[in-house]
Simulated assay, not measured.
Amino acid sequence: MRRRVKLAALAVGVLAVPTGLVVSTAGAASANASCGRTGPNLDNTVVSMAAGVSANMRSGSSTSCGVKGWADNRDSLDYYCYTWDANSASWTYLYNRSDGTYGWVKDSLLPNNGSTKHCGF
């Protein structure tokens, strides 16, 4: 269900006009967290990373951004919000309570597919 909500938010970026024209707006797909950008704490979800699973925590919502830490092996993760990358994949900004690091993790690697609260960018 959470994935459907995110996909629906992404689809809002294109509007059909009654005349048959399609008008494109600056939707969520064009927004991302540039390297070094943090996200606001909009979500109160705390999860535990699955045992044996590891994901890089990055400085922005892209694999080209530097690695700041890791979310792995039952770490306690506090979700803040999500945004999109240039390829329309969603990423969650989070706080790793187990080691005190903050960073962006691709939602496909997170429990429950990451945060359900959009960062606003």
Results as ranks from 00 to 15, higher is better:
Val23Thr: 11
Leu110Gln: 06
Ser34Pro: 07
Gly20Trp: 12
Met1Ala: 13
Tyr102Met: 07
Ser30Asn: 10
Tyr102Lys: 10
Ala89Met: 08
Met1Thr: 12
Lys68Phe: 05
Ala71Phe: 03
Asn113Cys: 08
Leu77Ile: 12
Leu15Phe: 14
Lys106Phe: 11
Ser108Gln: 06
Asp72Tyr: 10
Ala55Asp: 04
Tyr95Asn: 04
Ala26Asn: 14
Leu94His: 00
Ala9Tyr: 14
Val23Lys: 14
Ser59Cys: 02
Trp84Arg: 06
Leu110Ala: 07
Ser90Cys: 00
Ser30Val: 12
Ala71Pro: 00
Ala33Arg: 02
Thr19Pro: 02
Ala16Asn: 11
Thr19Cys: 10
Ser54Thr: 10
Thr101Arg: 13
Leu10Val: 13
Gly66Met: 05
Asp85Arg: 02
Ser76Glu: 14
Cys65His: 07
Gly120Thr: 11
Ala16Gln: 14
Asp85Lys: 00
Val53Lys: 07
Arg58Ile: 02
Arg58His: 00
Leu77Glu: 04
Thr45Gly: 00
Thr19His: 02
Val105Asp: 03
Lys6Asn: 09
Ser88Trp: 03
Tyr80Met: 01
Ser90Glu: 05
Leu109Pro: 00
Arg97Ala: 06
Tyr93Ile: 01
Trp91Phe: 03
Tyr102Ala: 01
Val47Lys: 04
Pro18Trp: 04
Ala26Gln: 14
Val46Leu: 05
Tyr102Asp: 11
Ser98Tyr: 00
Arg97Ile: 02
Val12Ser: 12
Ser34Leu: 13
Pro40Gly: 10
Gly52Arg: 06
Asn56Gln: 04
Ala89Lys: 09
Val14Ser: 12
Leu110Ile: 06
Val105Glu: 02
Gly103Ser: 01
Gly103Met: 01
Val14Gly: 08
Ser30Gly: 11
Gly66Cys: 06
Met49Trp: 04
Thr25Ile: 15
Leu42Met: 09
Val47Glu: 12
Lys6Phe: 10
Pro40Tyr: 07
Ser88Thr: 07
Thr92Lys: 02
Asn32Glu: 13
Thr38Phe: 06
Ala26Gly: 10
Val12Asn: 08
His118Ile: 03
Gly13Thr: 14
Asn73Asp: 15
Val53Ile: 11
Ala86Val: 07
Tyr79Cys: 05
Tyr93Gly: 00
Ser48Arg: 08
